[in-house]
């Protein structure tokens, strides 16, 4: 018998696909920002679905700070090879030459040059008029009002006073030369939806999301991963902790959480019990009140 029921996940999927197709139809040169994280993995799968049986009709852009975890690079390269995606990796060479790093420069300044500036440089260099990002509105209070099409001026800046109302599923993609939009096809997804979808669709994700024994510095309830780059003080004693990452960022600025979840269902179950927002493990947000709003205005995603 035919049924016309549609689940939450399938509704969200259909909406995201609609948005992606709309952008491809109306823009000259779209690009998808690919951060290697779980949201990017979902966004990539949605793009495959949207243009099936064709290939994804735009390149993926990874803004690489050079401080990502090794597992992320391996995962990225293998996945792109497998699905035949066109991957562009961009780094802010000038800043890296000046040895930009969060320990000496501070997190805000480091992010500003290796992420924000690098992103703007990459978008300008590529001449992209639309860029997909994987941000969701449930991530943070300040994102709750963000549009799906977020309009940027010729300098990539977001003008909160000049955003267009969005009605129904009609998106206004008109821009002047030099202007662009950022598009958030996952706007209406929540973190839990993302995990359920990854489970239902068997979407590959970086193994760092799953718990295992990892070398950590334990500082006031924060787990700071130890890599080759981590500067260790005399008192710092790394320990092996059963842990996983809830969000993936740069190795110096991403904290882990204690966990024993080694499968997606276990992660989902853990989320139902331990109830912390995901950004709590992102050290970058602890810099300064309202720091997201500030970064966004400057062109950060």
């Amino acid at each position: 018998m035919e049924t016309y029921r549609i689940s939450n996940l399938k509704t969200l999927e259909a909406e995201s696909i609609h948005i992606m197709r709309e952008v491809v139809a109306e823009f000259q040169k779209p690009v998808m920002l690919y951060s290697v994280g779980k949201d990017s993995s979902v966004m990539l799968r949605l793009a495959q679905k949207a243009f099936f049986p064709g290939k994804i009709p735009f390149p993926l852009l990874h803004v690489d700070t050079g401080f990502k975890f090794l597992e992320m690079y391996d995962f990225r390269d293998q996945l792109c090879r497998e699905i035949g995606a066109d991957l562009i990796v961009y780094q802010n060479e000038a800043a890296l030459k000046q040895k930009a790093n969060p320990w000496d420069w501070g997190t805000i300044k480091c992010c500003a040059s290796l992420k924000t500036q690098a992103l703007l440089q990459a978008l300008t260099a590529g001449g992209y008029d639309a860029a997909f990002g994987g941000a969701r509105r449930d991530e943070e209070k300040s994102r709750a009002k963000e549009r799906i099409y977020s309009f940027r001026d010729a300098h990539g800046q977001w003008d909160p006073k000049n955003q267009r109302p969005e009605l129904w599923t009609l998106y206004n993609g008109r821009t002047n030369p030099g202007e662009s939009i950022r598009v958030f096809p996952l706007s209406n997804w929540t973190e839990l939806d993302i995990w359920h979808y990854i489970h239902a669709e068997q979407i590959p994700i970086v193994p760092m999301y799953f718990a295992e024994e990892r070398e950590m510095l334990v500082r006031n309830e924060q787990l700071i991963p130890v890599t080759d780059q981590t500067p260790l003080g005399a008192d710092d004693k790394p320990e092996k902790v059963m842990s996983r990452f809830r969000t993936l960022g740069c190795s110096p600025c991403t904290g882990a959480i204690r966990s024993t979840a080694t499968t997606v269902p276990e992660i989902i179950q853990e989320m139902m019990v331990a109830r912390h927002s995901e950004r709590i493990t992102r050290i970058i947000d602890h810099d300064q009140e309202g720091s997201m709003e500030q970064k966004k205005r400057e062109g950060y995603f």
Partner: peptide, 28 residues
Amino acid sequence: LTDGLQAEREQGITIDVAYRYFSTPKRR
């Protein structure tokens, strides 16, 4: 938990709609 719109109006930010999400076992 949600009251953000007032403050933003004072800053002159275009407020139109804020989207919030919650779920129960039956519905999202």
